[in-house]
Design a protein around this nucleic acid. Structure first.
Lengths: 166, 166
DNA sequence: AGCAGCTACTTGACATGACAACCATTGTCC
DNA sequence: GGACAATGGTTGTCATGTCAAGTAGCTGCT
């Protein structure tokens, strides 16, 4: 593959080159993720929903009619509890989610997707699938597989030990 | 806890497989970026600075003694103007940045890194470099190059078409 | 000169995202 | 059975990120 000398570099308008290959990888990763997020936001905004909200609804749809405790939703999204609570407030206000205290364990609050929420998700499936495809349309299937492998490896990797922190 | 099924998939605890390779790529990308961001945040938090703030300071350091107009900083970070203004407020309050109305064009506000800001950056260079290395330590140099190429290609891809057409 | 239009911010409002503190339940252990 | 820790949420605060609207200053055209 031809090495584009400055795709990322020119975007940042940086005078000096990257200090290291790794630094370039970090910046490429963060900027790409940011761009892809914006791309999805552009699809969702006209429907009055944000990307995190959409993800919550998808999790609830995946949970089926039994619903899910609030924090379970958060865990599946790697999000912190407080954020989930407030997001759920809004989703409930919009009528996409229903909440109910769990009779078995009254500490828990079970969250369910409402028919309205399911309907919204149904409308979004196609556009979101298309957005998925569009985001990586330039890569072949093999290249996508390779990318996934590299990203998965990065996530599994030894990132920082506490000794390295300072 | 089991140890080794499918990396990304197990994290999300999703019952069904990904609907497409592309969807898997999207999720892998977003989650990896998120994780890497958290690692940098862990390095920066003890120093009382956030990742976006750190990036602003780096841009200002790169600008040198001539400073940069507020929105120029924003452009180099792909951030919107309002966010930059407020972040700069905080950076100025912390003494890391100095602002001054441009005499030539009184609409602009030039931002400069203060010696205190420069000193902070100096302290952070090493830990941040180590964090860069650690983030991709599992990948060889060639794999990093490959990853960068794939990510760059993704960013140049068709989801940018409208913006690129002008 | 004078005014329309553009530029560079600034402010306000709202949605995340993270942390800390707090409350109600539940589980545990003596 | 009663103190106490752990669990599951909620609330408050702060920093970002984004959009919409407003303001001050500059530019071009007449």
């Amino acid at each position: 593959m031809p090495k584009n000398p400055s795709a990322t570099q020119r975007e940042i308008r940086q005078t000096r080159p990257f200090r290291s290959k790794t630094q370039e990888a970090v910046i490429a990763l963060l900027r790409t993720a940011d761009l892809v997020k914006r791309h999805f936001a552009a699809v969702l905004t006209p429907h009055g929903i944000t990307l995190p909200q959409y993800n919550v609804l998808r999790v609830l749809r995946g949970a089926g009619p039994d619903g899910l405790p609030t924090l379970e939703v958060g865990q599946r999204l790697i999000e912190q509890a407080p954020g989930i609570t407030r997001m759920m407030d809004r989703l409930e206000a919009r009528g996409w989610v229903r909440r109910e205290r769990c009779p078995g364990d009254r500490r828990q609050v079970l969250c369910y997707l409402t028919p309205e929420g399911a309907s919204l998700l149904g409308q979004l499936d196609e556009p979101i699938d298309r957005a998925d495809q569009a985001a990586f349309a330039v890569l072949t299937e093999e290249q996508q597989t390779l990318l996934i492998t590299l990203l998965d490896a990065t996530r599994q990797g030894p990132h920082l030990t506490k000794a390295q922190l300072d």
